[in-house]
């Protein structure tokens, strides 16, 4: 352990906020500032970016000399790996594959995020979700989704 206590969480938070402020500020540079009478599209975001940067800096500054009372803990790597791609996959394939296969695979991907899920159970769950959702949304509510898309050589 280092001699001086520091709040690692807040250091990370401060740095991240400053980075976000930097990003927005940098993007705002390309926008017209205008005058305070007729503000350009860049005026307000620039002011906010500055404010966010200051807030981030203060959080960073205050993190030194104080112990981290609630450290980071575990990170759900497996969750991140499977949960986050699920909606992305659905978005990429719902038009091409169609609603039914896209939803089936989306559910299957998401279910892999848990170590407790057995392969067979995941399959059963995905089938059940797909059948029910298709009945409710596609047949019941008539949402304009194609059930099977043009990518399938049916």
């Amino acid at each position: 352990m280092s001699t001086k206590p520091k709040d690692d969480t807040d250091i990370a938070a401060g740095l991240l906020l400053m980075a976000a402020a930097g990003f927005f500020g940098w993007q705002s540079l390309g926008l017209e500032m205008g005058t305070s009478i007729r503000m350009g599209p860049g005026y307000f975001p620039m002011v906010l970016s500055g404010l966010l940067f200051i807030l981030g800096a203060v959080i960073l500054f205050k993190a030194f000399g104080r112990p981290d009372d609630e450290p980071f803990g575990r990170i759900a790597w497996r969750g991140i790996l499977f949960i986050l791609p699920a909606p992305i996959f659905f978005g990429l394939t719902v038009r091409g594959l169609g609603f039914v296969p896209a939803l089936f695979i989306t559910t299957l991907i998401a279910s892999q995020a848990s170590v407790r899920m057995r392969p067979l159970a995941a399959l059963v769950l995905a089938v059940a979700v797909t059948v029910l959702a298709t009945l409710v949304f596609s047949y019941g509510l008539g949402l304009p989704f194609r059930r099977f898309g043009p990518w399938l050589p049916l």
């Binding site: 099977f148 043009p150 399938l152 049916l154």
Partner: peptide, 10 residues
């Protein structure tokens, strides 16, 4: 109908 439609898509 839907299945049929799906088969002629290509």
């Amino acid at each position: 109908g839907a299945l049929f439609a799906a088969t002629i898509l290509t």
